[in-house]
């Protein structure tokens, strides 16, 4: 109903200014949960980048640890010390410092695994959707089988087969995570290749490789933003579960999940803070990511517009 007329040239305005004037930003400002979600995520990013410079100790440098300060409660409880805000664990590690370092490991795993899964899944989805036929059938049947197992179970199985380690965790997460991209991208690819601009590229004599990269790929990416955002949260949780079960990251590179496990043994001895605080931080991080993801889903889904 609204005629799509040329918008007056906005060349003078920078990309940044245009973003702040966009409908996307307008809706974002008015969406409380989106603002909250992005603030949480931003907070975590700031924490893991500059946090290690601020906290009082590196919890994995044994020389900085003080065994005398083991199992100190949080600062506001009796026996707590203002030096250790959230208390310490059995080796006298500052829980807050552990969380800062642990969040870093968790986020890096989540982001890198998401990137890997996205790359693998998108490639396979493009191939399946564009070429169709037997190739499509094989890829999608593998995806179906993959989806019929709970992802934690698949990851657990892979970890017990390959052994533990940061790289193994990444491989396990990518192996369970690519499917969602492959399915999304295949669907969008099928839809896009029906459109006339892809036919026009064929008539122009473009080879398939160029058609896929130049025409199909840029037009199937938008829905992936939502998938990727939510998946970082999912991966943080899966990794935490693996580490909690003892098949995740090594003890020298503890993630938030491993911190929970370490404190779990003493949880019922009244030393709750060692695992409850890392748990709360995981919850907060995943909550923030999901709030952001939900907003992006509403904004970027053309069917809701």
């Amino acid at each position: 109903m609204v005629s799509s007329q040329p918008i007056p040239a906005t060349r003078a305005r920078s990309r940044m200014q245009r973003f702040f004037a966009s409908e996307f930003f307008h809706n974002y400002k008015r969406n409380l949960s989106a603002v909250l979600g992005s603030l949480i995520v931003l907070g975590f990013l700031v924490m893991v980048t500059i946090g290690p410079l601020i906290v009082s100790q590196n919890p994995y440098d044994v020389s900085q640890l003080d065994l005398m300060a083991a199992f100190k409660p949080p600062a506001w409880l009796a026996g707590g010390s203002s030096e250790y805000w959230l208390g310490t664990d059995g080796q006298g590690r500052d829980v807050l410092a552990s969380i800062v370092y642990g969040s870093r490991i968790s986020l890096i795993i989540g982001l890198v695994a998401m990137g890997g899964a996205c790359l693998l899944g998108t490639t396979l989805g493009l191939i399946a959707g564009f070429y169709g036929g037997r190739l499509d059938a094989v890829i999608m049947r593998i995806a179906d089988i993959q989806l019929s197992f709970p992802s934690v179970l698949t990851a657990l199985f892979l970890m017990s087969a390959f052994g533990t380690g940061l790289d193994k965790v990444l491989i396990a997460l990518i192996s369970v995570g690519w499917v969602v991209y492959a399915r999304t991208v295949r669907g969008s690819t099928l839809r896009e290749t029906q459109k006339e601009y892809v036919q026009a590229a064929r008539v122009s004599g473009l080879p398939n490789r160029k058609i896929i990269l130049r025409h199909v790929l840029p037009n199937v990416l938008t829905p992936l933003i939502v998938v990727a955002t939510i998946q970082v949260g999912t991966f943080v949780l899966i990794e935490a579960s693996l580490s909690f079960l003892g098949v995740g990251v090594p003890v020298t590179q503890p993630s938030l999940g491993l911190l929970i496990k370490n404190g779990f043994d003493v949880l019922f001895s009244g030393l709750w803070w060692v695992s409850i605080f890392p748990g709360l931080f995981i919850m907060l991080l995943v909550f923030g990511i999901n709030l952001l993801g939900d907003f992006l889903r509403d904004e970027l889904n053309p069917r809701l517009k």
Partner: peptide, 17 residues
């Protein structure tokens, strides 16, 4: 020698180009 003009002015141009 052979080119084509399409029906749908909205679908026949790549929105990202």
């Amino acid at each position: 020698k052979l080119q084509m003009i399409f029906q749908d002015p909205y679908a026949s141009l790549n929105p990202r180009q």
